[in-house]
């Protein structure tokens, strides 16, 4: 890769919430960032209008058959990315006993199957450069559990296992694979958690507050930096001490 060209980072679900915060954080550090998501948002459009380093590509991870072709077109257009941030995810709130089968399938299809298939093809482009960083956005719920989020928790626990094994597969060609496990943040993803629950989470956290999306995003940025070159197969928790 030419050193004077900005490194390309692909952020799935980069149109809102934590994904958008990651996009913002990476453009500050001179990455060329492609936000891939099902739809664009006014916030992402504004970023694109004000920066020549942000791009949007429509991507629906539930359409498994389209991911190979999408990845091929992505690499033709932007080159092999330096970094892949697997942030796209959905959550259906509700106890397992009454959750519709289609909702269980949706969560696994996007958060796990689609994410793994995208990683397969994007990491193949990295293989040829013998360089790359993969960051999977997990959740503290993968290890702590949360009432009403069992399917989401299962999907995030899957990413933790994926992270560790893939780190072992790709380590010898200089590709690191890590996960970041955020605690509760004030994003649309935590809309199912009511104010009383959020207050309880704050009280039980060592820092007596929630983690900010910008703080989680800067952890992702750190994992992409030269300084983090020796970190692989790790799961970094950013939760204001909620699980301390």
């Amino acid at each position: 890769m030419e050193s004077n060209k900005p490194k390309v980072a692909l952020v799935t679900g980069g149109n809102r919430g934590l994904g958008l915060a990651i996009v913002k954080s990476l453009i500050d550090d001179d990455y060329s960032v492609v936000a891939a998501a099902r739809s664009n948002t006014p916030e992402l459009e504004e970023l694109i209008a004000n920066s020549d380093k942000v791009f949007f590509e429509p991507l629906d991870l539930s359409k498994r058959q389209e991911i190979h072709g999408w990845s091929k077109r992505f690499v033709e257009k932007y080159g092999a990315p330096y970094a892949l941030i697997n942030n796209a995810a959905i959550a259906h709130d509700g106890v397992l006993g009454t959750m519709h089968e289609s909702q269980i399938e949706d969560v696994i299809s996007i958060n796990v199957t689609g994410t793994l298939i995208l990683t397969k093809y994007i990491s193949r482009a990295m293989l040829r450069n013998r360089l790359g960083r993969i960051v999977n956005i997990s959740s503290i719920i993968a290890s702590t559990g949360f009432n009403g989020l069992s399917v989401y928790a299962a999907s995030k626990a899957a990413l933790n296992g994926f992270t560790k094994s893939l780190a072992r597969e790709l380590g010898k060609i200089n590709i690191t694979v890590n996960a970041v496990a955020p605690g509760y943040m004030e994003t649309s993803m935590s809309e199912g958690i009511n104010d009383t629950q959020l207050d309880q989470i704050r009280r039980r956290s060592a820092l007596k507050r929630l983690a900010e999306t910008s703080e989680v995003a800067s952890t992702v940025k750190y994992l992409l930096s030269k300084e983090a070159a020796a970190i692989t197969g790790s799961i970094l928790t950013v939760d204001a001490g909620n699980t301390a």
Binding site: H68, K72, R124, L127, R128, E169, K172, I173
Partner: peptide, 21 residues
């Protein structure tokens, strides 16, 4: 096995197809 993954990726560049997909 990783070498084969790289080979299949390399061949996709050169032949334009990945038959395994």
């Amino acid at each position: 096995s990783l070498g084969f993954a790289i080979l299949v990726a390399d061949l996709e560049d050169n032949l334009g197809i990945d038959p395994f997909v």
